[in-house]
Simulated assay, not measured.
Amino acid sequence: MATSKDKADKALSPTEQRKAREAAKLKENLKRRKQQARARRAGDAESESGIPAARDPEMK
């Protein structure tokens, strides 16, 4: 069953659909980056993130 959002997406041109998808991706990216910044400020950032070879072996 189609929802009102599905109907609205179908009414948009392909260019408008692409712009809407890009806007949603940017919004999600901003949300994730803000979450990461908050975690870093609070000292809760993951120490095991990133490429293992790039990490300092003396820091654990």
Score class of each variant (00 low, 15 high):
Glu58His: 12
Arg40His: 02
Ser4Ala: 14
Arg32Ile: 05
Asn29Gln: 15
Ser47Tyr: 11
Leu12Val: 04
Leu12Cys: 02
Ala8Phe: 06
Ser47Asn: 11
Thr3Gln: 07
Leu30Pro: 00
Lys10Trp: 02
Arg18Pro: 01
Pro52Ile: 07
Glu28Met: 07
Arg33Asn: 07
Ala42Gly: 02
Ala11Leu: 09
Ala20Ser: 13
Glu58Gly: 02
Lys31Arg: 15
Leu12Asn: 08
Glu16Val: 09
Pro52Leu: 06
Met1Ile: 10
Arg33Gly: 00
Ala8Ile: 02
Ala45Lys: 05
Pro52Gly: 03
Gly43Glu: 05
Ser13Tyr: 08
Glu28Tyr: 04
Lys25Phe: 10
Ala53Leu: 11
Leu26Asn: 13
Leu30Ala: 14
Arg41Glu: 09
Lys25Trp: 13
Lys10Ile: 03
Thr15Lys: 15
Lys25Met: 13
Ile51Ser: 11
Glu28Trp: 07
Arg41Asn: 06
Pro52Thr: 09
Arg18Gln: 14
Lys34Val: 00
Ala37Asp: 01
Met59Phe: 11
Glu22Cys: 06
Ile51Pro: 02
Glu16Phe: 12
Leu12Gly: 03
Glu16Trp: 12
Arg55Gly: 03
Gln17Met: 04
Arg33Asp: 10
Leu30Ser: 09
Lys34Leu: 02
Pro52Val: 08
Ala42Leu: 06
Ala42Asn: 03
Met1Tyr: 13
Ala42Ser: 05
Lys7Ser: 06
Pro14Thr: 03
Ala53Met: 09
Lys19Leu: 15
Lys31Ser: 10
Arg40Ser: 00
Gln35Ala: 07
Glu48Lys: 12
Asp9Ser: 11
Asp6Pro: 03
Asn29Cys: 02
Glu58Ser: 15
Ala54Tyr: 05
Ala54Asn: 11
Glu22Trp: 10
Lys10Gln: 12
Ala37Pro: 00
Ala2Phe: 12
Asp44Lys: 14
Glu58Thr: 12
Glu48His: 11
Ala24Leu: 09
Thr15Pro: 02
Ala2Trp: 11
Ala8Leu: 06
Asp6Asn: 14
Ser49Val: 09
Lys60Ala: 11
Pro14His: 01
Gln17Cys: 05
Glu16Gly: 08
Arg55Trp: 05
Ser13Ala: 06
Ala39Cys: 01
Asn29Ile: 11
Lys10Ser: 10
Ala54Cys: 01
Gln35Phe: 00
Lys7Thr: 10
Arg32Ala: 13
Arg21Cys: 06
Ser49Asp: 14
Ile51Ala: 07
